[in-house]
Amino acid sequence: MADDSTATIRAMFDTREAADLAVEHLVQQHGISRPDIFIQSASDQNTTGTHSSRGDVARSDATHEGVIEVSADIAASKMQDVLKSLTDSGAIRVSGK
């Protein structure tokens, strides 16, 4: 019998560019639907990450107040592969439950 349970995975990124790359990997490599992936500030501050990835330099409102969180509910059987993919995409911290 296959394990069809789900797990929530969370990854923290220093830049929006790295978070966007991670989302692309989740969609293209792991078949996770885009509406099931969430990107948000890891704190209560509006942020583009802890430092610029150069794509946000032209914006005057692009604050660097903290890390960006990417989260998704995934099949528990994909946990190890998704953890590795997020780490390879530049995550500074990854956790899954």
Rank of each mutant, 00 (worst) to 15 (best):
M1V: 08
A2G: 04
A2Y: 15
D4Y: 15
S5N: 14
T6S: 07
I9C: 01
I9Q: 05
R10N: 05
A11S: 01
M12Y: 15
E17M: 12
A19I: 01
A19M: 03
A19T: 01
L21A: 10
L21Q: 14
L21K: 13
A22F: 02
H25P: 00
H25Y: 11
L26D: 06
L26E: 08
Q29I: 07
Q29P: 00
G31A: 02
S33A: 10
R34W: 12
P35L: 02
D36N: 14
F38Q: 14
Q40Y: 13
D44C: 13
N46L: 14
T47E: 10
T48K: 09
G49F: 04
T50W: 07
T50K: 12
H51W: 10
S52I: 04
S52T: 09
S53D: 15
S53H: 15
R54M: 13
R54A: 09
G55L: 15
S60Q: 14
T63G: 03
E65F: 10
V67A: 05
S71A: 02
I74G: 02
S77L: 12
M79E: 11
V82L: 04
L83V: 10
L86R: 04
L86E: 02
G90Y: 09
R93Q: 15
V94F: 00
V94P: 05
K97H: 10
K97N: 13
